[in-house]
Design a protein around this nucleic acid. Sequence first.
DNA 1: ATTATTTGTAAGTATTATTTGAAATATATT
DNA 2: AATATATTTCAAATAATACTTACAAATAAT
Lengths: 210, 210
Amino acid sequence: MTAENIPRATAKRLPIYYRYLNILHDTGKQRISSTELAEAVQVDSATIRRDFSYFGALGKRGYGYDVDNLLAFFKTILNQEHLTNVALIGVGNLGHALLNFNFHKDGNLRISAAFDTDDKIVNTIEDGVPVYPIEELSHQLHDQQIKVIILTVPSKVAQSIADEAVSGGVKGILNFTPIRLQVPENVLVQNVDLTNELQTLIYFIENFGK
Amino acid sequence: MTAENIPRATAKRLPIYYRYLNILHDTGKQRISSTELAEAVQVDSATIRRDFSYFGALGKRGYGYDVDNLLAFFKTILNQEHLTNVALIGVGNLGHALLNFNFHKDGNLRISAAFDTDDKIVNTIEDGVPVYPIEELSHQLHDQQIKVIILTVPSKVAQSIADEAVSGGVKGILNFTPIRLQVPENVLVQNVDLTNELQTLIYFIENFGK
DNA sequence: ATTATTTGTAAGTATTATTTGAAATATATT
DNA sequence: AATATATTTCAAATAATACTTACAAATAAT
């Protein structure tokens, strides 16, 4: 059912919808129209209807969408009924910040293991997460069945650590390093390149701002 | 010259090219072909040539692109000859990590001011950056001519602080909160939504991974 | 002079977004 | 109750955007 053939662009919007539906649910709202939703999540209402309709007819004409129904549906689609464990590799400044980041709040995610080379933190608990020595990476990922990692290591070692993670069975990498990682084609990399984001922003402001 | 009509998708790739050109320059490489570049930045070589050609004929047939020429060109395009100051609002965990983040390394960017409500850090220097009380936000942004902010505040106050920043003359916001900010149409928001990225990654792994 | 390389761009394909209107439902009116 | 009007989804058609393929033209290397 969770179609193979929904557009990439749609898939990327699903978590946004999901989050806002949770908020609606919490405020006790029963129903929502695509127009209302559009304003909140800033996606055109027609795009929303198109997106939803890839999964069948979820709404009622003249009524809108039932919040709880929709929420339950997305919960399944986005695998939110069960907890997904991810690992964080590289407990530096950014790594620490992410350990504290409350992924669990509106996604059923949690960082269940961290890895680093620093003897001062290896084999301790940092922000509630056990830190393993990097040597155990591949082995631990395999044991703990972790399929997704957050990569916050120095650029120089990014590729070699990614390689090791992949050999440990990882299928997805949230990559905070500026390196464009080379991975097998069944592994997905999502780049979060902060310098890049800022430069793009500035470029658009300089060239398209009036 | 810096065309109005280049595709959005192209503009987003410019910083990626720029960064890699810097690396090439540092290693002393004189020339580069689109094919070689393609492998490094993981963008199809034809796409690269197409992207470059929006800015004129930057390469030489049978030769490739001169690294230094190209670098100088992109430096202008991306406004990297002069330093761009940005402000960071919300010096929590993530905020601190970003203050330490070396934007300056491969972008000519720096965080020159930070804002927070916490009396313990207000009017001190954190990680080399002065922290101002949030009350001075609009006024300081205006005085320091800061056009871009990084927003790392709690969700509840995100919109109101964004409003204030906009009234202080801000034109671009790198938004780390999950809130979809409402801003005037001449203001650009770039969302960095970490929960979102992770959920999307997991969605793709679950549904498209073999 | 010949061959190999490499750009630049046109044409074709694919993906994504927008517009439009019919069908279904809800709400208001008589 | 019955009818009319407004709302809203869903799907099809269209438009816009982005990517890929292919190759002629230019240059470099031999």
